Amino acid sequence: MTTHEHPRAGLRVVGGGLPLLQVDNVSLEYRTPDRVVRATHRVSFDVHAADRFVLLGPSGCGKSTLLKAVAGFVPPAEGEIRLDGQRVRAPGPDRIVVFQEFDQLPPWKTVRQNVMFPLQRARGLSRAEASDTAMHFLDKVGLAGFADAYPHTLSGGMKQRVAIARALAMRPKVLLMDEPFAALDALTRRRMQEELLALWEDASFTLLFVTHSIEEALVVGSRILLLSPHPGRVRAELNSHQFSLASQGSAEFQHAAQRIHRTLFEEPEQAAPAATPQSRRATHTH
């Protein structure tokens, strides 16, 4: 078993075992009318089964673009993304995305139908099987009583819970969440974080989660990758499984948040050297 420590972050990464998801020296680019812009530069990290892995960084660091690349929507300009050892080349039902926007549910379908639809189309379940599965996961997110409601009658938090139920019902290898709670008010956001962690405790799925909130990253994540401002490069990777919603007011939590802030926003010439791709290959421990 090996450990790697970033001198500024002050938190260890511990490892052993084979990764489920590998992002290997991935650079991502997008075109503007005038030029090609590099969003990330040679980013490497591993995600293990049952990880709650968070991509954390300031706006414009390419974290959402990285998530889309893992989903198969954006091809790398260089490097490779592998899931279970197979190169990711296109979207697939083994990677389901929950976006920030509330309007990701077709408004003409009921809550139950929204969850059933991909089960029938992508998984080939019968109508009865899809309905049973949909109700199981709607119950998990506390919305079984709203199965026949339409999305326009739901609050923003409820719509996100339907989107999470729909994603989990597909039983993806990796659940991808792109700042899913950013547009919610503070109380609803905290409740959604609680519910997400409770779902993870129940189902132990693998999560790749994007946020720009240091506090949310510490609460939601078991491991966190820190990305520098544009273009996104790896600043550090650290363990955060010791934190929870209950520890937010603790001195240890605040100290970790301050250290992460300094690591993210220090000037490049002052920053500690980034880990090599080999040293960034952190592995999972329970």
Rank of each mutant, 00 (worst) to 15 (best):
R121I: 12
H4L: 14
E266C: 15
L56P: 09
R12E: 07
T2A: 12
A39I: 06
L187Y: 09
W108I: 09
P277D: 04
M158P: 07
V26T: 02
E78V: 08
T206W: 02
H152V: 07
A274E: 15
L56F: 12
E216H: 10
V74S: 03
E194W: 08
D202G: 00
D139A: 14
T32G: 03
S27V: 04
R87T: 15
A275V: 09
F53R: 00
Q22R: 12
L225Y: 01
D51G: 01
D132I: 06
A169I: 12
R235M: 11
D24E: 15
S250Y: 13
D94E: 15
N239W: 02
S240I: 03
T65E: 01
E78D: 15
A163L: 08
T285A: 05
R127N: 07
V174N: 06
R31Q: 06
G72S: 09
A274D: 13
K109W: 09
L196F: 08
A163K: 08
F265L: 10
I260V: 11
I224D: 00
E129N: 05
P231R: 09
L245M: 07
T206F: 05
H261D: 11
F243V: 10
G62Q: 04
D94L: 11
K63N: 00
W200I: 11
R259C: 02
D24M: 11
D185K: 04
G92E: 13
L197R: 10
L11K: 02
Q120N: 00
R42C: 11
H255A: 13
S126C: 08
I81F: 13
E179K: 11
L28Y: 01
T211N: 05
P118K: 09
Q100Y: 07
R166Y: 08
H241F: 07
G15E: 12
N239V: 00
V220D: 01
R281I: 06
K109V: 00
T65V: 11
T133E: 14
R127M: 04
L67N: 03
Y30Q: 02
Y150K: 11
F265Q: 02
G124V: 06
V23M: 14
A282H: 07
I214R: 08
D51E: 05
F243C: 02
P58T: 01
G232T: 04
A122K: 08
P231C: 09
V162L: 08
A257E: 03
A128W: 01
E5H: 12
L138S: 06
E78K: 11
R121V: 15
V98D: 03
V162E: 03
L226C: 01
G16W: 01
D51N: 00
G72W: 12
L196G: 04
E129Y: 02
V210N: 03
Q193H: 13
F243E: 12
P180D: 05
N114T: 15
H6P: 04
A186R: 12
E29V: 13
F209A: 06
T188C: 03
V88W: 10
L168T: 14
G221E: 03
K109N: 09
V220M: 14
N114R: 11
F117P: 00
G156L: 07
F73L: 15
D94G: 12
E201V: 05
A49E: 14
L208N: 01
L175D: 01
A144R: 14
A77N: 09
R262G: 07
A186I: 10
H136M: 05
